[in-house]
Computed example of a mutant assay.
Amino acid sequence: MQDITIKIIDREGTTHEVQAPIDMNMNIMELVRMYELAPEGTIGICGGMAMCASCQCYVLNDVTIPEKCDDEDAMLWEAYNVKENSRLGCQIQITAEIDGLEIELAPES
């Protein structure tokens, strides 16, 4: 298996079902940028260092993803529009285990 399927609801409310490569060491934030699902300069501003929350998303289904690290937890503590299911897309690696993940991009703050 080289690709998995992920559903992403963009900030306009449109659902995109995209193919994500598991062999390129990518994360959700990079996937959103690759498919241009958010305007340039509005997602991944810090480059994926868990320092800006521009890639915040809401996990919509019960796919098992890794626990939040301390940096992600701290950034979400300071972010806007945070919900119980909020995660930073830059901290969710694309692996075979997250096949079928459904997320919604959080609004820009």
Rank of each mutant, 00 (worst) to 15 (best):
I94N: 01
L88A: 09
W77I: 02
Q91W: 07
Y80E: 13
I94T: 04
C69D: 15
M75L: 04
D70C: 04
W77R: 06
D73G: 00
Y80D: 14
A74L: 12
E72C: 09
E67N: 10
W77T: 08
E72K: 03
M75Y: 01
L76Q: 01
E84W: 06
I92A: 08
L88Q: 00
S86Q: 06
E84T: 10
E72V: 09
A74C: 11
C90L: 13
Q91T: 04
L76C: 12
N81C: 13
L76R: 05
A79E: 03
Q91C: 15
A74D: 14
N85Q: 12
N81D: 15
W77N: 10
K83P: 12
V82D: 01
I65C: 13
E78C: 13
E78D: 12
D71Q: 10
L88R: 02
I65N: 05
G89K: 04
C90E: 03
Q93M: 15
I92H: 05
N85A: 07
R87A: 00
L88K: 00
P66H: 11
R87K: 12
G89E: 03
W77E: 07
G89C: 07
Q91H: 10
I65K: 03
N85R: 09
E67D: 14
Q91N: 09
I65D: 03
V82N: 04
P66W: 00
K68W: 00
L88N: 00
L88C: 03
L88S: 10
S86H: 06
M75P: 02
